Amino acid sequence: YYKILGVDKNASEDEIKKAYRKRALMHHPDRHSGASAEVQKEEEKKFKEVGEAFTILSDPKKKTRYD
């Protein structure tokens, strides 16, 4: 999950949140509406992965379990 968000394992809550926003905007489906179906599908997959990574890393209990 750290790799997906592009943050270090010791990243602060704020750094995780900023990285999530950056990656979410980058891969958001609306940004790729004019792209081919294949690209849209890949970006949607990445967008979901970013969301999942943020869900785990932003919750202290889940993050501890993950680490």
Rank of each mutant, 00 (worst) to 15 (best):
Y1L: 13
Y1W: 02
Y2C: 06
Y2G: 02
Y2Q: 06
Y2W: 01
Y2A: 01
K3H: 10
K3N: 14
K3L: 04
K3D: 15
K3Y: 08
K3S: 13
K3M: 08
I4N: 07
I4C: 09
I4P: 08
I4L: 08
I4A: 09
I4W: 03
L5W: 01
L5N: 01
L5A: 03
G6W: 00
G6K: 00
G6A: 03
V7H: 04
V7Y: 00
V7F: 01
V7S: 02
V7D: 15
V7T: 07
V7A: 05
V7L: 12
V7E: 12
D8H: 10
D8M: 02
K9G: 07
K9C: 09
K9T: 14
K9H: 11
K9R: 13
K9P: 12
N10T: 10
N10E: 10
N10Q: 04
N10R: 06
N10M: 06
N10G: 11
A11I: 00
A11R: 01
A11D: 07
A11C: 03
S12H: 02
S12L: 01
S12Y: 02
S12I: 00
S12W: 00
E13L: 15
D14H: 12
D14Q: 10
D14C: 09
D14E: 14
E15M: 06
E15G: 01
E15N: 00
E15C: 02
I16N: 04
I16H: 06
I16P: 02
I16G: 06
I16K: 03
I16R: 04
I16E: 05
I16M: 07
I16V: 05
I16A: 02
I16Y: 01
K17D: 05
K17C: 10
K18Q: 12
K18W: 04
K18P: 01
K18L: 09
K18H: 07
A19T: 02
A19N: 05
A19S: 06
Y20P: 05
Y20C: 06
Y20N: 00
Y20G: 07
Y20V: 07
Y20E: 13
R21G: 12
R21T: 14
R21F: 11
K22G: 08
K22I: 13
K22N: 14
K22E: 15
K22L: 12
R23N: 14
R23P: 04
R23H: 14
R23G: 10
R23A: 14
R23M: 14
R23L: 15
R23E: 09
A24V: 11
A24Y: 14
A24N: 04
A24K: 08
A24R: 13
L25G: 12
L25Y: 13
L25C: 10
L25P: 04
M26R: 10
M26K: 15
M26Y: 05
M26E: 11
H27I: 00
H27L: 04
H27R: 04
H27N: 04
H27T: 03
H27K: 07
H27P: 04
H28Q: 01
H28E: 09
H28A: 03
H28D: 07
H28K: 06
P29K: 07
P29R: 04
P29M: 04
P29I: 00
P29W: 02
P29N: 05
D30P: 04
D30W: 01
D30F: 05
R31P: 02
H32P: 03
H32G: 12
H32Y: 11
H32R: 03
S33Q: 12
S33T: 13
S33M: 11
S33R: 15
S33G: 10
S33L: 13
G34K: 12
G34L: 10
G34R: 07
A35L: 06
A35G: 06
A35R: 08
S36D: 07
S36I: 05
S36A: 08
S36W: 00
S36G: 11
A37C: 11
A37N: 11
A37K: 11
A37H: 13
A37L: 13
E38V: 08
E38W: 03
E38T: 12
V39T: 13
V39N: 04
V39S: 08
V39W: 02
V39G: 04
Q40G: 08
Q40S: 07
Q40W: 04
Q40M: 02
Q40C: 06
Q40T: 09
K41I: 08
K41Q: 11
E42Y: 11
E42S: 12
E43R: 05
E43Y: 03
E43G: 01
E43L: 01
E43N: 07
E43C: 02
E43M: 09
E43H: 15
E44L: 12
E44T: 08
E44G: 09
E44S: 12
K45Y: 02
K45V: 09
K46F: 00
K46I: 01
K46V: 02
K46N: 04
K46T: 01
K46M: 01
F47A: 09
F47W: 07
F47K: 14
F47E: 09
F47S: 07
F47H: 12
K48F: 05
K48D: 07
K48T: 10
K48L: 09
K48A: 11
K48W: 01
K48C: 12
K48V: 10
K48G: 06
K48H: 05
K48Q: 12
E49D: 10
E49V: 03
E49H: 00
E49S: 09
E49Y: 00
V50Y: 03
V50M: 05
V50C: 11
V50R: 03
V50K: 04
G51C: 13
G51S: 15
G51M: 15
G51E: 15
G51W: 13
G51H: 15
E52N: 09
A53I: 01
A53W: 00
A53E: 02
A53N: 02
A53D: 01
A53S: 05
A53K: 03
F54G: 11
F54W: 13
F54C: 08
F54D: 10
T55Y: 10
T55S: 15
T55V: 02
T55F: 01
I56E: 12
I56L: 08
I56G: 10
I56Q: 11
L57G: 08
L57A: 06
L57C: 03
L57V: 06
L57P: 05
S58G: 11
S58K: 10
S58D: 04
S58M: 10
D59R: 00
D59G: 02
D59V: 00
D59F: 01
D59C: 03
D59I: 00
D59A: 01
P60H: 09
P60Q: 10
P60T: 07
P60S: 11
P60C: 05
K61V: 13
K61L: 12
K61H: 13
K61T: 14
K61A: 12
K62D: 09
K62T: 14
K62Y: 06
K62P: 04
K63H: 14
K63L: 04
K63T: 05
K63E: 11
K63Q: 05
K63W: 03
K63S: 08
K63I: 05
K63D: 06
T64V: 13
T64F: 14
R65Y: 05
R65E: 15
R65F: 12
R65M: 15
R65T: 15
R65C: 15
R65H: 13
R65P: 07
Y66P: 15
Y66C: 10
Y66W: 01
Y66E: 13
D67A: 06
